[in-house]
Amino acid sequence: MYGWGILKGLGVTLKHFVETFWDDLRWLGKRYFNEEALAVRQGTKARGIFTVQYPEEKLTLPEEFRTIPFLVYELDEHGEKQYRCTACGICSKVCPPQCIWIQRSTDPETGRPVPSPIEFSIDIDMCMNCGFCAEFCPFDAIKMDHDFELSSYDRQATHIYNKEQLSKPVSYYASIRPTNYAREEEARAAKAKSKAEKATG
């Protein structure tokens, strides 16, 4: 019959249409703004309306999610920021669009390089969010952020991030990437232990 194919197609559309109401009923009005429902709604078993009501609710970001990099610091007993970065320059060398600039400190007396950065800048208008800097950093000092809400009205003044803007505490890192953090801390502890053993033995 001519037109049967179209009718069959419209049947599919109708099915989708009905499914949305069916799923609403199933959740008894608790379909939105509900963590549990969001997980089901966005998972592989999702039926019905697929929308995530951003900004009120946000998609759960996977641990590996990456936007722009940030520098990890730890607070020491005086409340000073202790950067893990040693200004070794690997991140700036591995960066594909070359958007990382690092200024290494030098000892004012000897003129020798000191393993810490005076300034660390990333031009986020060039950064391609590839994650190489974080991947190849031997000191776990630079990591990829989860914060994607970065829109601004101006870029000339703000889009080259300096060290201050890039800094985030290690607790923040632990909160966005718990598994990676736990694994790395373990490795660091093991390394420190073997180093200590070597020093004593």
Binding site: V52, T67, M128, S151
Partner: peptide
């Protein structure tokens, strides 16, 4: 408005 990111995710665009 400038939206950084490469590419910005749809949520970033909405923001």
């Amino acid at each position: 408005v400038y939206i950084p990111g490469c590419p910005p995710t749809p949520q970033a665009l909405l923001h």
